[in-house]
Design a binder for these strands. Structure first.
Length: 151
DNA sequence: GCCAACGTTGGC
DNA sequence: GCCAACGTTGGC
């Protein structure tokens, strides 16, 4: 099983929204690196750390698991949709999504500030490529974050 | 709201 | 295939 971090701006889609939906398709990824993780690497039952970005105190807020592997992001060929891409089509989809299911809120929110202060987490992509919205997390990193959230 | 970092686009 | 211009992300 692998671990991932998914970012979302709470003003777009918060963990609270997600909890009330129970499940969601992770649509709208329009970055090739993130797309490749979705298409090639994210597997059923992988665990997702849900991160709130682009707010005053960015933080990890909850856990989810993958319940459906990559399938084409059909919004990408819907002209009405915000994430429409001229170059994507049903015959040749450029973008993909996975479905995830909410597991639970973390016992306690873990702030970016705390992650930065923890030397063992200094290699996290979160701290080194701040723009990647889907990123792998090492098991040891994930375990430490869970531990932090339980304290 | 600013702006650094980084990804994408397109002219050459 | 280079790289300037431009757009977006996201921390602050």
């Amino acid at each position: 099983m692998n671990y991932w971090l998914f970012k979302s701006e709470p003003s777009d889609y918060s963990f609270e929204n997600f909890i009330s939906d129970k499940e969601t398709c992770w649509e709208g990824i329009r970055n090739y690196q993130a797309r490749n993780f979705i298409r090639d690497d994210i597997k059923i039952n992988d665990e997702v750390l849900f991160y709130h970005s682009n707010i005053s105190e960015p933080h990890l807020v909850g856990l989810a698991k993958v319940i459906r592997e990559a399938y084409p992001d059909h919004y990408s060929w819907n002209k009405e949709h915000k994430y429409y891409d001229l170059k994507s089509s049903p015959d040749n989809p450029r973008w993909f999504m996975v479905d995830i299911k909410a597991i639970k809120e973390l016992k306690r929110i873990v702030y970016l500030k705390e992650i930065k202060q923890e030397p063992k987490l200094s290699k996290m992509i979160l701290l080194n490529n701040s723009r990647l919205s889907i990123q792998p997390v090492k098991k040891c990193e994930r375990d430490l974050i869970i531990k932090m959230s339980n304290n």
